[in-house]
Design a binder for these strands. Structure first.
Lengths: 245, 245
DNA sequence: CGCAGCCTTGACCATTATCAACGCTGGTGG
DNA sequence: CCACCAGCGTTGATAATGGTCAAGGCTGCG
């Protein structure tokens, strides 16, 4: 049941559910270099998993036996401090891998934000397969490399940007991640709560709310609803995000 | 001229200079799975690079043609905002790779902290070789995976930890990275300036200095010199680092 | 000896967190 | 159908953490 589907870059893919092997196709087609045979092999070692919004996929500290690829929906990956402070390390969408950054145990927890389906691979199986089909390993490396670059951007954001700059960066970056992004230019969907945004940006919900209000009153953005907005002045917002005052 | 050297886990390796292929051996032996033939092939495509302290290796925005492996010394990897704010994304030591987190262009700059030698590989060459010898790709993936986990810890630190907690975490983590770490238990070398520590932890030099002083007066650490200290109460320091107040 | 560079300490300030109240919205049950 | 409630978001007042500005100390080198 394999099909190599092209990746339409518009809203046509909205709400589209891919079956498992297609998920592989979608994920890997981004990295390139995988053929039908590779995907067929992947299909054989994959199990499907379905989560309702809010359900947990992996927990920090559990043995890291699986690697996941998201076929639909979205998840949040986060770490906790003992007193409950939470840092969301990433929002992941269809096509993304879960479980790349692990040694023996998962060093983070993952929960579904909305209803989500995934493919699950036993790492052992995946590794065995990758020995035969180097393209699988290359695809994973490619992905890990991109995640690493993204992580470094987040480190810059958290270490050196002001609240205002963080919000601006977030609004500009989010659409590039979200496969369900609105088709209209400069429209941004916020599928997560203010709490989640705050925990992703190292801020509080109050600060997120206040900075959004300020961007609104200064005319850089306009709220269409609580969870959707339009960027009215993309260049100015970019300047804010980059700290060019 | 290849030798697979074991990795002594004590200070015997201090100041030891490895030639290029050995560098490969050191780096990859951590990941496991490389044999002499692999290392010989690596040796053939590697060039040696030597830097004096403070010299630049790569600059943000330059085309990312090379991958480096450090054979001796240490470097800092950082990103800048237009107004000069700097975020150091990592300190890298002998055995570490430079250039994993790149797409087309380098998304960071790298400078030598002290005199440093490296092996340089053209990415093209490395990739070509990796197609023949999958263990090379696997080693790189393994490394990228660990860096990703480290990056997520740094994201937690920058997003949710207080200045005190950041300093404590730093003092505890540094020895696990530094191949030149002192042999005595709980002794920590600080090969970088306060400025560099500040730019790594998302703080100012004044705050770094003050928090070190507080840890000192509360008896958790003792300065042996400006650049070396002893952790007097490791469990308590760990508790501080983890936010267990 | 004197200077430069780095570090420390102090006084003050700003950004963001905390605490609190209120508003909006959507769902449920009378 | 409406009223109530819960959950989320906004706004305001106040507080605290960490930043900024400034002065002075230490160390190593010429």
């Amino acid at each position: 049941m394999l099909e190599l589907r092209s990746l339409p870059n518009d809203c046509a893919r909205r709400r589209q559910e891919s079956h498992c092997s297609t998920c592989g196709a979608r994920a890997f087609s981004v990295c390139g270099g995988l053929d039908r045979a590779d995907l067929a092999s992947l299909d054989e070692i994959a199990e499907r998993v379905a989560l309702k919004g809010g359900e947990s996929l992996v927990g920090e500290g559990e043995p890291a036996q699986h690697l996941f690829n998201i076929t639909s929906g979205s998840v949040r990956s986060y770490k906790l401090l003992p007193d409950g402070r939470r840092q969301i390390t990433g929002f992941l969408f269809a096509g993304d891998f879960v479980g790349l950054a692990t040694g023996e145990d998962y060093a983070f927890s993952v929960e579904a934000i909305e209803d989500t389906t995934l493919c699950r691979f036993r790492k052992r199986d995946y590794r065995a397969l990758a020995r035969e089909k180097p393209a699988l390993e290359a695809a994973l490396l490619n992905r890990a490399t991109h995640e690493l670059a993204a992580a470094q951007n987040q480190i810059l954001l958290l270490g050196r940007k002001t609240a205002r700059e963080r919000i601006a960066s977030f609004l500009l970056d989010l659409p590039t991640l979200d496969p369900l992004r609105p088709s209209q230019k400069n429209h941004v969907r916020l599928p997560m709560t203010r709490m989640e945004i705050a925990d992703y940006l190292g801020l509080t919900i109050e600060t997120v709310s206040r900075e959004l209000t300020k961007l609104k009153t200064s005319g850089l953005i306009r709220m269409l609803s609580l969870n959707e907005l339009k960027i009215e002045a993309p260049e100015q917002l970019r300047a804010v995000a980059d700290g060019e005052v």
